[in-house]
C-alpha cells in the first residue's frame, strides 16, 4: 500500500448559530492514496462540502490535521501555499458559477498556466490547445465565451483548468450532478481516463451512490458531520452497516429492467 497522498485526521469545523455551536464537521479522519478515488457521501448537511472547502483551505478548521504530499498543509502560507495549491485542484457542480461567463475558454485556461508559471507566454496558446484536446474538445472552442457553450462542454473546461497545473489531487464537489445522464457518463469516463493516465487522485463528493459505485475505490459515508462508515465502495454500498448508509441505499432509485416495475401500487 502506497503512502497516503492526503491524510486528514481529527478534522473539525464548528459554526455558531445563535447561542448554539454546531459542528458541521466533527472529528473526521480519512486518507487518499495516489491515483485513488475516495467518495464522500451523505445527506444534505452531513458535512461533505465543508470537508471539501477545508481540504482546499477555502476555510480553516477549528481542529485537526491535513497532510498533503507528505507535508503539513495547514502550516503553509503565502507563496508556499500558492505553490502547493497547483497540486490540489477543484471542480464544482456548476461551472457557470465558477467562471466569469463572459470570459473566453482560452482566458479561463490561460489563467492557471500563467499564474502557476506552467508555460511561457509564447507556449501558452499551444498549452491551451493541448488541454482542450486532452478533455475531448476541439481547439476551435478557445475563442468562444463560457456562456455560449453547453453544460457538458463547460464541465470539460472546468476539468481542463483543473489539470492544467498537473495536480496530484482534484476535489470534485457534485461535479456531475447537474449534467444530463448521457453527458454525465462521458464526463465520468474522461475523469477515469485522466486518472489512469496521470495518476490523479479524486476526492469525489456526491449524493449519488450509483455514480459512486461506478467510479470510486473507497467511500466514506457521513452523517451530521461524523463518519458513519467507510470502506471499499462497492462492498459498503452492497451491504451498508450504518443506519444512514442503509437509508441512502434504500433511497436510491432502482431500475429493474426485467420485471414489472411501476405497475404495482406499493402503497
Amino acid at each position: 500500500m502506497s503512502r497516503p497522498l492526503l491524510a486528514v485526521s481529527g478534522l473539525t469545523k464548528r459554526y455558531r448559530r445563535g447561542d448554539k455551536t454546531i459542528a458541521a464537521v466533527d472529528d473526521v479522519s480519512f486518507d487518499i492514496r495516489p491515483g485513488e478515488t475516495l467518495a464522500l457521501a451523505g445527506p444534505s448537511g452531513s458535512g461533505k462540502s465543508t470537508i471539501a472547502r477545508l481540504v482546499l483551505r477555502l476555510i480553516e478548521p477549528d481542529a485537526g490535521r491535513i497532510e498533503f504530499e507528505g507535508g503539513d498543509f495547514l502550516a503553509l502560507n503565502g507563496a508556499a501555499l500558492r505553490a502547493r495549491r497547483a497540486r490540489l485542484q477543484m471542480v464544482f457542480q456548476d461551472p457557470l458559477a465558477a467562471f466569469n461567463p463572459r470570459a473566453t475558454v482560452a482566458r479561463v485556461l490561460d489563467d492557471p498556466l500563467r499564474i502557476h508559471d506552467v508555460a511561457s507566454r509564447r507556449e501558452r496558446p499551444r498549452g491551451i490547445a493541448a488541454l482542450l484536446e486532452r478533455v475531448g474538445l476541439s481547439a476551435d472552442l478557445a475563442g468562444r465565451a463560457i456562456h455560449e457553450i453547453s453544460g457538458g462542454q463547460r464541465q470539460r473546461i472546468a476539468i481542463a483548468r483543473a489539470i492544467a497545473t498537473k495536480p496530484s489531487l482534484i476535489v470534485l464537489d457534485e461535479a456531475v450532478s447537474a449534467l444530463d445522464v448521457s453527458v454525465r457518463r462521458q464526463i465520468l469516463q474522461l475523469l477515469l481516463d485522466l486518472q489512469r493516465e496521470e495518476r490523479i487522485a479524486f476526492l469525489f463528493i456526491s449524493h449519488d451512490l450509483g455514480v459512486i459505485s461506478a467510479i470510486a475505490h473507497r467511500i466514506v459515508i457521513l452523517d451530521a458531520g461524523r463518519v458513519a462508515e467507510s470502506g471499499d465502495a462497492r462492498a459498503v454500498i452492497g451491504a451498508p452497516q450504518s443506519a444512514i448508509g442503509k437509508a441512502l441505499v434504500a433511497a436510491a432509485p432502482k431500475l429493474n429492467r426485467t420485471s414489472t416495475q411501476g405497475t404495482a401500487d406499493r402503497q
Binding site: G35, V211, S213, H217
Partner: peptide
C-alpha cells in the same frame, strides 16, 4: 440509451472498464 446511461447501485463499474488500479 437513457436506460443504459442510468448508473444504478448494481451498475457495471466504469472503474474496471477504465482499468484503473490501486
Amino acid at each position: 440509451a437513457l436506460l443504459d446511461a442510468h448508473l444504478g447501485l448494481d451498475a457495471e463499474p466504469l472503474l474496471q472498464q477504465a482499468g484503473a488500479s490501486r
